[in-house]
């Protein structure tokens, strides 16, 4: 248990630092940035305290907001995906989820990809809608969601594969 707390705290700090030092400065093609800090929410232990997940996701988003001067956009997007996570898990993994037998890093490739992409696109859609705050920019929002989403998805899949190798 304490091992899990330490690992998640460490993941929180490393992801926030990586996001603000590295990924916020990529600016691929001028406006595309990946947001792989969402890995914290994806990899948070399943079946653990939901209130804790909500609260730590809020803190995660707020720390990113503090560094990017973006008010509470990242916090809102992170809290929302943290809240809908159980339903997405349930609809994808079904019975295995109810027996607490799901682990993202060891799940089948297709199911993992589906779960991560739903979470990422939901997160990015909320994030960019709040950023532009104007429904007449819907094309811009969707474009940015798609491009940044694919970028984040690639990075997330890469990181999960890289860092779960050891534990098999």
């Amino acid at each position: 248990m304490s091992n899990s707390i330490i690992r998640n705290t460490l993941r929180f700090i490393v992801l926030v630092l990586a996001q603000i030092t590295l990924f916020n400065n990529i600016e691929f093609l001028g406006y595309i940035n990946p947001y792989p800090y969402i890995l914290f929410i994806l990899l948070f232990p399943i079946g653990d305290n939901r209130a804790l997940l909500l609260f730590s996701s809020f803190l995660l988003g707020l720390s990113i907001d503090m560094f990017t001067n973006s008010g509470g956009m990242h916090a809102a997007a992170s809290v929302t995906v943290a809240y809908i996570r159980p339903w997405i898990l349930q609809s994808i993994f079904g019975i295995a989820y109810e027996y607490n037998a799901v682990k993202i890093s060891t799940a089948a490739y297709g199911e993992r990809l589906l779960f991560i992409s739903i979470m990422i696109f939901a997160h990015h859609l909320i994030l960019f809608s709040l950023e532009s705050f104007n429904f007449s920019d819907i094309i811009y929002i969707l474009k940015k969601t798609l491009f940044s989403g694919v970028f984040t998805l690639t990075l997330c899949m890469l990181f999960i594969t890289l860092f779960s190798f050891r534990r098999k």
């Binding site: 809020f58 001067n69 008010g71 956009m73 809290v79 809240y83 709040l130």
Partner: peptide, 22 residues
């Protein structure tokens, strides 16, 4: 409904910050 209430509270807080930033 404690999880939902916590979620609603945190979302409200972050939306307030967002609107202020605009």
């Amino acid at each position: 409904y404690r999880n939902f209430l916590l979620f609603a509270f945190l979302l409200f807080l972050s939306l307030v910050f967002t609107i202020q930033s605009h």
